[in-house]
């Protein structure tokens, strides 16, 4: 009888815990969307920020976030692809490989603020590039590389060994087999991982405060020459992103409507991250069906 009562009690408690966890998420989303969405408007999404108070629109920040994301992905995808292929195909099971894996593990567990400080030290202090898009993108790459590498390695390793044997038995090189045969099969998993990591990169702020900087100089969206100082594509201009903007407004902003501003910006950020998550799933499933030819 006693055991049964304990069992019942435990079940009740666990159900309450689960309800609380779900409740927390619902509250978080509801709070952000309800308090933020009413302030999201076209002018907010495209307008410029008042440099002194931090009030105004988030057009430049939104652009910066996407620009940094694209640059980060352009740098980190090829590197992690090569590294993932190394681990899945070339790495032997020895102490050197386990050292490499530990190094990747260490990189992935470093706090993003430490990664950001390293970027700051290297690009801003040592190389004197200053707060810039490119410094930010490389810092984000450091932060992104270990996860992406692991994801790519896992996706490649999950492809059946018989596919590798098929390629090799036809006289294809290991490299060609990996790129031409294995990679297409592993693509759904890899793409899902890339899009998910894009969501993470999009919301990251700590690594950017001292690399991409905390100011969003007004840029001339009619000038697409990356060499021009005012061009939005110039990789050497400082670029406050949306996530950094939210932090900035909340900690140092002088805007009277800081709470509204950050609620609205948070809502936009959350929606973007949700879209990345959803997109990862849909794209992954779609590619999976294409690759396996199942309808």
């Amino acid at each position: 009888m006693n055991a049964k009562r304990t069992d019942f009690l435990a079940t009740v408690i666990i159900n309450l815990i689960v309800a609380a966890v779900v409740g927390i998420l619902v509250f978080l989303l509801a709070y952000i969307l309800i308090s933020g969405l009413p302030h999201v408007s076209w002018t907010f999404l495209t307008g410029t920020t008042d440099a002194f108070s931090g009030a105004g629109g988030i057009g430049v920040q939104l652009f910066n976030s996407f620009y940094l994301l694209v640059l980060t992905m352009l740098i980190s995808i090829p590197i992690s692809l090569g590294a993932g292929i190394y681990l899945a195909e070339y790495a032997k099971d020895n102490w050197r490989t386990s050292l490499i894996r530990s190094a990747i593990e260490v990189l992935s567990s470093l706090p993003s603020v430490v990664v950001g400080l390293f970027g700051f030290l290297l690009f801003v202090v040592k190389f004197k590039i200053g707060f810039s898009v490119i410094s930010g993108a490389i810092a984000l790459t450091f932060f992104n590389l270990p996860l992406l590498t692991r994801n790519i390695e896992e996706s490649l390793s999950a492809v059946s060994r018989s596919q590798r044997e098929a390629g090799l038995s036809l006289g294809l090189s290991k490299w060609k087999t990996e790129i031409g045969i294995i990679l297409p099969v592993a693509l759904p998993g890899i793409v899902t991982g890339i899009v998910l990591s894009a969501g993470r990169v999009f919301g990251e702020a700590a690594a950017l405060i001292y690399t991409a900087g905390q100011s969003a100089p007004v840029t001339n969206f009619a000038d697409w020459n990356p060499m021009d100082a005012a061009s939005p594509l110039n990789p050497f201009r400082p670029a406050e992103t949306l996530a950094v903007h939210i932090w900035k407004v909340n900690t140092e902003g002088l805007a009277t409507n800081a709470a509204q501003l950050s609620a609205a910006a948070s809502a936009v950020l959350i929606i973007a991250v949700l879209l990345f998550n959803l997109g990862a799933r849909l794209l992954g499933n779609f590619l999976y069906r294409r690759v396996t030819a199942s309808k």
Partner: peptide
Amino acid sequence: ATREDWLGKGISYLCIGVIILVVASMLWFI
């Protein structure tokens, strides 16, 4: 095929090398 393999090995070793370099210099600098 042999040349491809050299190239492939070169590329993937280079990529893993970049990561190791990043980790090592991060530890060293900080």
